[in-house]
């Protein structure tokens, strides 16, 4: 089965619900090595995303991603706003005009997201940022394509997220801490993991995968 706009909308609703639930946790993570607003920023952003995407009906998945990205850019601020925003906008450009897409196509779109995050954030893998979830997870999706095992993807995403604990931050606020950042999860990696986990839930629920 193919992924349609409605699935993406459901995904965003689930992200919104999950982020809201984990707001305090995300903020706590950010208090440890940042400035303690990541939960606040993300809930503000996805609340607005939901409002926006409920106003329109979308035939074009690309347009939907684009709108999500624009809302995130203009409502979140901080580091996560432009990064998540760029990720969705870039993915939207790839998916422009498509009413439905395969998991493969989604993987290609995410590859553009990853490129966008890297360019905007001047970051690379191992810098202890959201990229440490986005890049490997995207690669994983692309490698497995339509034969993707969703439960395995969830574990994989979580592993990547957990892995940020060991890293020394090179980018973002946590970088100011140098070695003192080691031992803490990166808040953006955790919210990114939420994003991919909720995507997986939708794919499972809606029987959008082979499995």
């Amino acid at each position: 089965m193919l992924i349609q706009s409605d699935h993406i909308i459901k995904w965003m609703e689930l992200v919104n619900a999950q982020i809201d639930k984990q707001k305090e946790y995300l903020t706590q993570l950010d208090q440890a090595i940042g400035d303690g607003d990541h939960g606040i920023n993300m809930t503000r952003g996805f609340k607005e995303v939901i409002q926006k995407i409920h106003q329109t009906t979308y035939d074009d998945i690309g347009k939907l991603f684009q709108d999500v990205g624009m809302v995130l850019v203009s409502k979140v601020g901080g580091a996560s706003g432009p990064l998540y925003g760029t990720a969705f906008i870039k993915a939207g450009q790839v998916l422009k005009g498509k009413p439905e897409i395969t998991i493969n196509e989604l993987g290609q779109a995410f590859q553009e997201s990853v490129n966008g995050i890297k360019l905007r954030g001047k970051s690379q893998i191992g810098d202890k940022t959201m990229l440490d979830v986005w890049e490997p997870v995207t690669k994983y999706i692309q490698q497995n394509g339509n034969t993707l095992n969703i439960r395995e993807l969830i574990s994989y995403a979580r592993e990547q997220m957990e892995h940020t604990k060991e890293l020394e931050a090179k980018k973002g606020r946590a970088s100011f801490l140098g070695k003192r950042s080691i031992g803490h999860l990166d808040p953006g990696a955790v919210s990114s993991c939420i994003l991919f986990e909720t995507l997986c839930s939708i794919l499972l629920e809606e029987n959008l995968t082979k499995e």
């Binding site: 400035d35 607003d37 920023n41 979140v76 901080g78 706003g81 432009p82």
Partner: peptide, 12 residues
């Protein structure tokens, strides 16, 4: 002015 301790957004 952004939100408290949060950079303002590009549109602003």
């Amino acid at each position: 002015a952004g939100e408290v301790f949060t950079s303002p957004t590009p549109d602003q």
